[in-house]
């Protein structure tokens, strides 16, 4: 399969702070690739580097056969971007936003108008065509931003936290649209810190922290490679005390977080039998998921810097 985007040994510092630290990545045509990481992991900086908006200190970047940042203009002609922070034109209607944005790509008004019905349909905004942007809901604005990113019929679409701040209905609609895009052969690169989003949408994922990629693979591979297959969550005031004395005997690994103990096991049966002896504890037995991997790899402590 053709490589659409490749980064080798990409590095970017701001002063003493290394934001992207020797990043290697390659994305194939037609795949949906997810970049996961806590706030401040370097995801947005990575996207800005890939678009040629900032220059790396060292490293090689190819986007659609163009060297970036040297030929970034030519590369961006074939790319669509859904930014993290809304930047639609508030003075314009839905249709005007699409028209004005299409012109930035050098498209004629006739060519943009010809694409307009399809774009509005895709964004479920046909009935809002002549409505001004400030009156749209958060979900509608996101869908318009997505439609705007498609105005030039791009081959690659960059999405920076596409569903942050949306309610579940709006989020599911965006997911459905992104799946349609992948099905139609587009290549997607999205950043997110929603694990269910990554698990549902992405063919491959990279977990990023402190400017480095610490694990790559399909969602299943990441789980299989990094974590025991079963998780038992134990809750209750006595959970921590119970964990100190009993958990290590039945679980390969356990973590205490407040009043919850997370036990990671290959076979949950012995642990579940043990827990039945402790009626004061409640528990939940489930298969390991991506969030467990993420927390294992990037730690449970809060990231305060953005």
């Amino acid at each position: 399969m053709a490589i659409v985007l490749s980064a080798q040994n990409l590095r970017k510092c701001y002063g003493d702070q290394v934001v992207v630290d020797g990043l290697n990545l390659s994305i194939q045509r037609g795949e949906c690739f997810g970049l996961l990481g806590p706030n401040g992991a370097g995801k947005t900086t990575t996207l800005r580097l890939m678009l040629g908006l900032i220059t790396p200190d060292t490293g090689e970047l190819q986007l659609l056969d163009h060297a970036v940042p040297q030929q970034a203009r030519a590369a961006r002609l074939r790319v669509g971007v859904v930014p993290q922070i809304d930047n639609l034109d508030p003075d314009f209607t839905v249709a005007e936003n699409l028209l004005v944005y299409g012109r930035y790509f050098g498209m004629s008004d006739a060519a943009i108008e010809a694409r307009m019905p399809e774009l509005l349909e895709f964004a479920n905004l046909t009935h809002k065509r002549d409505v001004k942007v400030p009156t749209l809901s958060g979900g509608m604005k996101r869908r318009l931003t997505l439609a705007r990113a498609l105005v030039n019929d791009p081959e690659v679409i960059f999405l920076d936290e596409p569903t942050t701040g949306l309610d579940p209905q709006a989020r599911h609609l965006i997911w459905q649209r992104l799946r349609e895009l992948t099905a139609s052969g587009k290549t997607l690169l999205l950043t997110t810190h929603f694990m269910d989003e990554a698990e549902r949408l992405c063919h491959r994922l990279a977990v990023m922290d402190n400017g480095r990629i610490i694990s790559t693979g399909s969602p299943r591979e990441l789980i299989a490679q990094n974590i025991e297959p079963q998780v038992v969550e134990v809750f209750g005031e006595q959970a921590a005390a119970w964990a100190q004395s009993h958990a290590a005997r039945h679980a390969q690994r356990f973590e205490v977080s407040g009043e919850t103990v997370y036990c990671y096991v290959a076979d949950a049966q012995p642990l579940l039998l043990e827990l039945q002896q402790h009626p004061e504890l409640r528990y939940l037995h489930r298969p390991a998921n991506l969030e467990d991997v993420f927390l294992k790899l990037t730690g449970r402590e809060m990231r305060e810097q953005s």
């Binding site: 908006l53 002609l77 790319v79 809304d86 930047n87 034109d89 030039n152």
Partner: peptide, 14 residues
């Protein structure tokens, strides 16, 4: 405030 430039910079405009 409106980040219009950010939007434009994602297109082939410098």
């Amino acid at each position: 405030e409106q980040r219009t430039w950010d939007a434009i910079l994602n297109t082939p405009i410098t």
